[in-house]
Structure formats: structure tokens, C-alpha cells
Amino acid sequence: MSGKSRRDFLKTSAVIGAGVAGLSTSTVKAAPKNILSEDRMGVLVDSTVCVGCRNCEWACKEAHDLPAGDLQSYEERSVFKDKRRPGTKALTVVNEYSSGKNSNLPVDVKVQCMHCDHPACVSACIVGAFSKEENGSVIWDTDKCIGCRYCMAACPFQVPAFEYDKAINPLIMKCDFCFNRTKEGKLPACVNICPVEALTYGPRTELVKIARERIKRNPEKFVDHIFGEHEVGGTAWMYLSGKDFVELDFPQLGTNPAPGVSESIQHGIFAYFVPPVSLYALLGGIMWITKHRKELDEEEKS
């Protein structure tokens, strides 16, 4: 009797094991697009050049079909009273800070998605809607999104925004690096309009070189740090500043990719499904042994 039962058990386990093996291969295939191309593009934001004209805000809204209003209304500088954040109605905003040590001019900082090289959102998204594209942009497929907002919880820069006011079809919104424009060889809308080219668009590797050169040539003007060169494993958007980045509300982040720890835990637990399958086998074994022992006990007694 017990022989038969063991056979049954093994047979069932084998079937489950095969099923699980099938699952694991398709999981690998189902991972979201996450390309880290050598030639990926980026933007160098030189906050010492930015004049705070906010033309980029207008251009961004125009390019993304958001209500933009009249360009001239962006000359209004009272908006700088509060520190603003990118949201669903403006994917990028410029904030103004009091002057740095080398100037009596205010410091203006444009804020938008940093387009990380190792994006937390791509790793986190439950349906794999986010992707890191070959040209460096981190974009997402709205049709996949279920609105769980895990990307917002995961983002180290707190960038993705959600349309809380919509009951139907609320969207996650963030800068998409003008993916539709760059695809056609055009510049991102903000880079295109910037009157002083505080935003330089180019291959990321070249931008790093240019940024280094600028710091070297003018060490008194700049803080010796390129924000985004190494932060969370590098970002496509990088900043130069004449003032300490912390004072400009940049988060203090290490150089490890944001999804690093989480992904290694995930992949550890699910390394080719070995741990769960072993646990299954172990529990099955315990179950069978305890049962068997009980029966032996009972046999002895009777």
C-alpha cells in the first residue's frame, strides 16, 4: 500500500516540477525591455546657465498635448515662491533657489524624470509596462498599466505622478524624454526651446566628458560633482551646479542601482525556481514521513 502511495506522490511532484520549469522559462522571456546601450543619449543640465525662463515647461506641455497656455504667461516669476514638483499637469518644472556663492543671480533648477540607467520603475512595475529604451529614455506602456502606483513608491526621485482626480482611465505621468520626437531625430522639446542651451542633449558618455571639462576649466564656478553620473548607478539626465546639490533639493543617493537589493532578493528566491520547488519537495517529504511514522506507531499498537 505504502509503495503505491509513494509512486503516486512522486508522479504528482514530477508533473508539478515540469509545470514550474515551464513557468520559469517564460518568466525570463517576460522580463521588461531594459537596454543599457553604449550610445544611449542623455541631457546635461547646467544650472549655472539656466535663467529660469520656464520656456521648457511650456514646450513640454505643448509636446505632450497638455494645456500649455500662452508662452508669455511663463514670464511670471511669482511661481518660484513655492518649490514645485513635476505632476500630471506639468511633466517638468523649474524651481528657483537663492544665489550660490559665486553670483548674485538666483539658481534655477529644472526638474523632471532622471531616466535612470537602472530604473527602479522598470524593475518594480507589476506588469512590466516600463522599459529602458536603447536611446536612454525610460518610457511606459499606458495600455498595460493597472494603476498600482508601485513605480511611484519605488522611484528614488519621486517623479512618476498619478491622475488621482480621474475615476476612469487615470494615468501615470512623467517625462518620457520626448520619445516620440527623438524617434524622428528631433530634439526633446525642452532642449529644443531652451534659449541659453542650459540643456545639452547628446550621447551620455560625451556629456560626462563635457561636464568634466567645464568643471576643470572653471573650478570656482562649479561644485566638483556631476549629479547623475554615478547616483543610483547613473542617470541619463545629469546636472552641474555652482551650489551644493543638497541645497537645491537633490536627494542624497548612493551609487548602487535603486532596484539592486530588491532584484537580488527576488532573483535569489526565484533562482530558476529551485528554492520554491525544493521547499515543496521538503514539505512533501515531511508530510509523507510524519504520516508514515504515525501509521507505524498505530500498527505497533494494534
Binding site: V49, V51, G52, P195, E197, E213
Partner: peptide, 28 residues
Amino acid sequence: DISKPDLEAAYHRQCITCHREWSHGTNC
């Protein structure tokens, strides 16, 4: 060649950097 700004930026940098100092604005 993105090592130096384009012409529009070069002009604007020269002008706006001073002009906004006393005008406190960026009026085109």
C-alpha cells in the same frame, strides 16, 4: 559638436545673463 553652445544659446547667454540681473526677469 555639443561641446560649445549653439548660436542662439551663445547670443542669449551673453544677453540674458546680464539683462536678468537688473530686470529680474526673462522678458523676450
